Computed example of a mutant assay.
Amino acid sequence: MFGLANPDRFLRFTRPLTPVAWGVAVVLLAIGVWLSFTAPEDYQQGDTVRIMFVHVPAASLGLMAYGALGVSSFFALVFRHPLADAAARAAALPGAAFTALALITGSLWGKPMWGAWWAWGDARLMSVLILFLFYIGYMALRASIDDETKAARAAAVLGLVGLINLPIVKFSVDWWNTLHQPASLLRMGGPSMSEVFLAPLLTMMAAYAALFLAVWLTSIRTEIVRRRVLTLRARKALEA
């Protein structure tokens, strides 16, 4: 891992890996969509159960992406390595997109199931909303400071603070009474849902994970090139 912290090594290692990740993501998404539409209706939820195949993976990836952002921020802040900062920055936008998708599909699912688009008193809803705001705050903070070094440090601190919210999101359904049901996948005794819904759900979760990896690697590679171009321009300006 520390060997890949070298930008040149990282670029060489991820050059063949990135298109593979994109290919795996496309294939898994195609299979997942097909399984989602061919799955039977739920006896209680009907066709609205299919929203689960978009909502649950999006929520999971929102947490995973922020975990990547937070860990990268730690290495950027402690070891001050530019590649770690690039990784944190690259995780922010896709993570925010996945979290926004989780909030939107959650509202679409909540209306027929709960009778309301949103419940301000629900701990899971509010903690995911706070997660989205951390993403927005991270990107806004970086954009608001002209000095890129200062912006990276300030954003890294915010990224680390936001890690506190991850266990709150995960265990909110266990710690408080919420409209959300308890965990159905990661629980003692194994998954509680039927196999006809489990297969498309797990496939879509794998597809989202591959998609995030593909986007993340592509964004990090682009960020490395962008910084090298800026450095080259600065050197030419000094020479001039």
Rank of each mutant, 00 (worst) to 15 (best):
A143L: 12
S144H: 09
F197D: 09
P182H: 04
F171T: 02
D147R: 07
I168D: 01
E195I: 03
G189V: 10
V196S: 07
F171Q: 06
S192L: 05
L186D: 07
V161K: 05
L158I: 14
A154E: 11
L185C: 10
D147T: 08
M188R: 13
F197C: 13
L185V: 11
A140Q: 13
L179P: 03
M204F: 07
L163T: 06
M188N: 14
L201D: 06
V196Y: 05
D146P: 00
R153Y: 14
M204G: 02
L166S: 00
L179E: 05
L186N: 05
D174Y: 00
A152C: 14
A155N: 11
L201E: 06
W175K: 09
L179T: 02
K150F: 07
A140D: 07
K150A: 13
P191E: 01
L158A: 14
G162S: 07
V173N: 01
L198Y: 08
F171L: 08
P191F: 02
K150G: 13
G159E: 10
V173I: 01
T203I: 12
G162C: 05
A152M: 14
A199L: 15
L186C: 02
P191I: 01
A140N: 09
M188G: 13
L158S: 11
F197R: 11
K150H: 11
R153M: 13
I145F: 08
V169R: 00
F197H: 15
P191W: 01
G159T: 08
T149F: 13
R153S: 15
A140I: 12
G162H: 05
A152W: 10
D146I: 09
Q181P: 01
M193P: 04
G190M: 00
I145K: 06
P191Q: 03
M193G: 03
